[in-house]
Design a protein around this nucleic acid. Sequence first.
DNA 1: TTATTTGTTCGGTCAATACCGAACAAACCG
DNA 2: CGGTTTGTTCGGTATTGACCGAACAAATAA
Lengths: 160, 160
Amino acid sequence: MADIEKQVGFVEQVGLYFEGVGLARIAGRVIGWLLICDPPHQTQPDLVEALGASKSSISVALKDLTTLYLVERFTLPGDRRTYYRTSKDMWSRSFRARMHQISELKALGEAGLAALEGESPERLKRLSLMRDMNAFMAEEFPKLLDKWDAIKREKGYDDL
Amino acid sequence: MADIEKQVGFVEQVGLYFEGVGLARIAGRVIGWLLICDPPHQTQPDLVEALGASKSSISVALKDLTTLYLVERFTLPGDRRTYYRTSKDMWSRSFRARMHQISELKALGEAGLAALEGESPERLKRLSLMRDMNAFMAEEFPKLLDKWDAIKREKGYDDL
DNA sequence: TTATTTGTTCGGTCAATACCGAACAAACCG
DNA sequence: CGGTTTGTTCGGTATTGACCGAACAAATAA
């Protein structure tokens, strides 16, 4: 059965999670709601109603989320309204965002090494490690994503 | 040669990076400085001087960083002062933090499924995907870290 | 046309928090 | 013993930004 209490809790938790990774809390709540709502596509007024937020906040949150490709706009023939739903690849997107952070660290390591050009190898060791570790991870991440894509298809998640 | 300009830029960049992942900007600057300074261990007054921050801010930043095991306290025999340096495994630590986020998402997916207990499989699909993808990544991450540890040893980074 | 629905943008308010300076606390040195 | 160095804690300030309401815009329905 539908445990409304738990559903509300879920939405709040997801809100806090995404707030923790840099989004606005409301944007996180939108994601949470879009993950459990029925139907899976919702209009802005739907979201205003469901989340008890102002329509301006919802509007901004959806703009951010669509820009990040975590949520996509969606329409139905014969229906002039605009719906929003989680994007099929939202989790891959989130993952790629992490990957980007790693690449950033790799680049920062390189920048640091450039700044210490000519210094002793001993002095450069901290930065080399920083660069090499993050370079390694930046290389491995895409492989993980590929691997997951295969499993995903195996599991029959193709349509999602 | 030591390009001071670039070094300052590096410290600022690292500061911004770590601010972006949830630390205080000053804490990020401390990390940046500890990655390039000579010697690699520094006292609190050293950091106050180098970063132009107040000693209270430095004190707090170091407390946070040592709690996260990104920086460690360090002493020298016959020297009563306390030094601070980046910890050997600071990058693995950062990585494990990411891993923890992934596990959190997995757990959130499970919580969502519990909240929708009894609903149609169709409705549960978004949450199942969320759970399965993050479960997969949470399993693969430790393997990546192991793989890196081997390479790290190969590369002669053992002592760092 | 006018009224209603939907949506964006802008200004202001409020909350969170990073940072500093000052007060306080130890430990060591003269 | 003072006095100096080192370090933490606390209160206040200032910045940031999330959020809301209101104004505005545009499209549709009556």
